[in-house]
């Protein structure tokens, strides 16, 4: 564990807390893509199949349980909470996310570290996480306006990815045999998807104005 990895995990956790806060405080999920949230729930369940087979640390187990539980809770709220579900932007959230699931799984069958159920699901979750933000970015682009908490949620998610890249650079330089092509290449792709959002986020922050994305 290095400082970049810890910062990455903490910003990831913070992003989820911000999203839960938004849903809890405003009883609204407007601006949030349910499809992206469902993809994240699939990502965590598929990746943490090792929860019962490999023990790494109390920290690791705790974070895995938090990520699985929070992602399922968010999806549950957006689908079933009587007030929250009413604010869901159904007509804006039309990205065909099943396509991403299928493509990621197909890629995992071709590119994996080892041909075992756990490793294929692990690779699948890495590929799916890389593209899971797409329905959310498309929804924001369509609605144009981004409320503060939604903007911060995506900002922290992007920061989490950026810290993970720094973590890999650090590990590559300090650990003798650190090579993780699947995670690193997917991670760079994932971070690149945020570049556009970050650009507009910083402009609005610099001008102290409301975040707006171009149509």
């Amino acid at each position: 564990m290095n400082i970049f990895r810890l910062a990455g995990d903490m910003t990831h956790l913070l992003s989820i807390l911000v999203l839960l806060l938004k849903i809890y405080a405003t009883k609204s999920c407007s601006g949030i893509s349910r499809k992206t949230q469902e993809l994240y729930a699939i990502v965590f369940v598929a990746r943490y199949l090792d929860l019962f087979t490999d023990f790494i640390s109390v920290y690791n187990t705790f974070m895995k349980v938090v990520f699985i539980a929070s992602s399922l809770a968010i999806v549950w709220c957006m689908r079933f909470h009587p007030m929250v579900r009413r604010s869901y932007d159904r007509e804006l959230d039309t990205f065909r996310h099943y396509f991403l699931v299928g493509a990621s799984f197909a890629l995992a069958l071709i590119l994996h570290e080892k041909f075992t159920v756990q490793e294929i699901f692990w690779a699948f979750s890495i590929y799916l996480e890389a593209v899971a933000i797409l329905p959310q970015l498309v929804l924001l682009q369509r609605s144009g306006n981004v409320d503060n908490l939604t903007g911060q949620y995506i900002f922290f998610l992007g920061a989490y990815r950026a810290f993970y890249i720094l973590n890999w650079i650090y590990r590559y330089l300090t650990e003798p045999h650190f090579t993780r092509w699947i995670a690193c290449v997917s991670g760079v792709v994932q971070t690149a998807l945020y570049a556009d959002f970050f650009y507009y986020y910083f402009i609005s922050w610099k001008n102290n104005s409301k975040l707006k994305l171009p149509a």
Binding site: D9, H12, D50, D54, I56, N60, M63, W122, A183
Partner: peptide
Amino acid sequence: LEKVLIHDEL
């Protein structure tokens, strides 16, 4: 056989 792949990141 020793398990070589340990995914220690989240």
